[in-house]
């Protein structure tokens, strides 16, 4: 018990150190920033769950501090981007209170697949550089795990399919169609349909949705698209019931640095599918 109290005091003292500590620090003495930084996503998981010491030594279930709620509260308060004022303290505190509840604690599990990596990349497409967003998720294969492509957002594709009511929320608008007696005339009117390329998707079935990942792989295989570079990576977490948060990497010369929560939202479980779709497919979510 005494060891635990001393340790928590030490952690709080280190995490609460003011930025004044940054003044005049030379590289090799500047380790408190490195120590405080959430250096890997792995460390974010471990700190979130209370599964490691302040210096990164792993706790196991036999250790007294493993999953300790007080330790988690200290860590969690420093896992938010403190310079983002769009996340009110009341909301952050409510989240921390919720996930560290003694009777119903919530932990993150990287093998639970309801979290996504958003990777912003550069693609050379038809001899021009284009930004492109890849979404990856974790999947099991054989005995191990791997990241797999779940979706692609690529503006040259999405602009081709502007006529598709992708989210299913547009009011009915009359459009072109193949009339119900077309079979009697051997579908000779198809020629006219295929000449109307701007509205061609109106001739598709209700359940039609363009699959951008298929298109992306097709264009890579055809040699029309070429992968160039990775620009940025962030993560979307849906694992905590009734919450969503975003994780991004921030490089700063202070104690609030590394992989941090950069957005937090209360989202009812029934509405999470809408948010996933928004993140995956909505143009406002992509810098294209």
């Amino acid at each position: 018990m005494k060891r635990r109290s001393i340790f928590l005091i030490f952690v709080v003292a280190l995490l609460c150190s003011s930025e004044a500590m940054a003044q005049g620090v030379s590289y090799l003495e500047g380790n408190e920033f490195v120590l405080a930084e959430t250096k890997q996503v792995n460390q974010f998981f471990r700190r979130f769950n209370g599964e490691e010491d302040y210096d990164g030594t792993r706790f196991y279930s036999s250790d007294s501090l493993y999953h300790d709620p007080m330790l988690r509260q200290v860590y969690l308060s420093n896992l938010f981007d403190k310079q983002d004022y769009n996340m009110p303290d009341s909301m952050k505190n409510s989240f921390i209170f919720n996930v560290t509840d003694r009777y119903s604690p919530k932990y993150l599990n990287h093998r639970k697949n309801d979290w996504y990596a958003q990777v912003d990349v550069i693609i050379n497409y038809e001899n021009q550089k284009h930004p492109c967003t890849l979404f990856l998720k974790m999947e099991r294969e054989n005995k191990g795990t791997k990241w797999v492509l779940a979706n692609v957002y690529f503006q040259p594709f999405t602009s081709m399919f502007k006529g598709v009511d992708f989210f299913g929320n547009e009011p009915y608008k009359p459009g072109p169609y193949l009339h119900p007696k077309s079979h009697e005339i051997k579908f000779i009117n198809l020629k006219k349909a295929f000449d109307r390329l701007g509205e061609i998707e109106k001739y598709a079935a209700n359940e039609f949705n363009p699959d951008y990942l298929t298109l992306f792989i097709y264009e890579l295989k055809r040699g029309n698209a070429e992968f160039l570079d990775v620009k940025n990576v962030k993560f979307h977490f849906f694992q905590v019931d009734n919450w969503y948060f975003e994780l991004s990497s921030l490089s700063r010369k202070n104690m609030n640095s590394g992989w941090l929560i950069t957005d937090l939202m209360r989202v009812a479980e029934k509405d999470k599918e809408i948010l996933r779709k928004y993140i995956f497919f909505h143009e406002n979510n992509h810098a294209n």
């Binding site: 093998r111 639970k112 697949n113 309801d114 998720k137 849906f238 779709k277």
Partner: peptide, 9 residues
Amino acid sequence: IGQSSADYF
């Protein structure tokens, strides 16, 4: 496009 929260390995 989502997955059930029980999907883990």
